[in-house]
Design a protein around this nucleic acid. Structure first.
Length: 266
DNA sequence: AGCCAGGCTGACG
DNA sequence: CGTCAGCATGGC
């Protein structure tokens, strides 16, 4: 049983947006399969990152006070291994939006263009495939999902993937090289690329920098400058699992569990 | 009623 | 290389 405030991991950590509450727990359609927050199939074990030794990640940063503090505050938090395409679509939609609206957008895409499956008194909707979205009409897409100016990005990126852009191949590339390739997709900048690398392609050393994390890095580590400078400095300081640590930093900062005050650690 | 949101793009210097 | 307006939409 995964119980980092249980449902917080799934519904409120800003990693994933289409899980639904059913009669007995949370469920979602992932890659065409039903997953639950209680499940222990091989697919679910991978999705919930059961294999990773989080205590080892914590102890590896025991001499970095802010990181240790954040991870201790977020015990049980996991970095989910989502299908790459699902992470890519969700995080293109995430740009310049808040979590509540991202959730609404992702669900609109699933409802309007995805597969539906009844499950325990609920209807689960899966992510639409790249093929479906590559053929969508832009005006229809806007009208049905209210995704606004992101519509052409979605359609063009879906087309790239449907036409053979190999997301899975990025899994085995070095992180920076995989990042460069993601940056060629419409609607994908540095932040979105890092989220796809971390949440969808198994790159634990990807470090997404948003406004929260930037503030926090300045407050805790006195790291300032451009987002890319912050990103590089964070990767250097926090090491090969910086992305795992980042989730705790993000969550602790966003939920106000820690104070952000310039020059003050903790 | 504004301000802001897990930013990206294109233009310009 | 860095900076910066503009962007659709809706939650708060």
């Amino acid at each position: 049983m995964r119980n980092f405030d249980g449902r917080l991991t799934l519904l409120d950590s800003g990693q994933v947006f289409h899980w639904q509450e059913t009669q007995d727990g949370f469920a979602a359609l992932v890659n065409g399969r039903v997953m639950t927050d209680q499940g222990a199939s091989p697919e679910e074990a991978f999705y919930f990152d059961d294999k990773r030794d989080y205590s080892a990640v914590l102890s590896a940063c025991r001499n970095i006070a802010p990181a240790k503090r954040a991870m201790s505050l977020c015990k049980g938090l996991r970095v989910l291994n989502q299908p790459a395409w699902e992470a890519l679509l969700a995080f293109i939609l995430s740009t310049n939006n808040n979590l509540a609206r991202i959730k609404g957008l992702v669900r609109a895409f699933a409802r309007e263009y995805g597969e539906v499956r009844p499950y325990r008194g609920a209807l689960l909707y899966g992510f639409p495939s790249p093929e479906i979205l590559s053929r969508a009409d832009e005006e229809d897409l806007r009208a049905k999902t209210h995704c606004g100016y992101r519509a052409p990005y979605i359609i063009q990126t879906a087309r790239r993937v449907a036409d053979g852009f190999d997301l899975e191949a990025l899994r085995s590339l070095e992180t920076e090289e995989a990042r460069k390739q993601l940056l060629t997709l419409p609607g994908v900048g540095g932040k979105v690329a890092d989220c796809v690398l971390l949440f969808g392609l198994g790159h634990a050393d990807a470090f997404p920098v948003d406004v929260w994390v930037a503030r926090l890095m300045e407050s805790w580590f006195q790291v300032e400058g451009s987002l890319d400078k912050v990103r590089r400095e964070a990767r250097r300081r926090l090491g090969p699992n910086c992305g795992i640590i980042q989730q705790s930093l993000f969550h602790a900062a966003r939920t106000g569990q820690i104070e952000l005050e310039k020059g003050k650690v903790l």
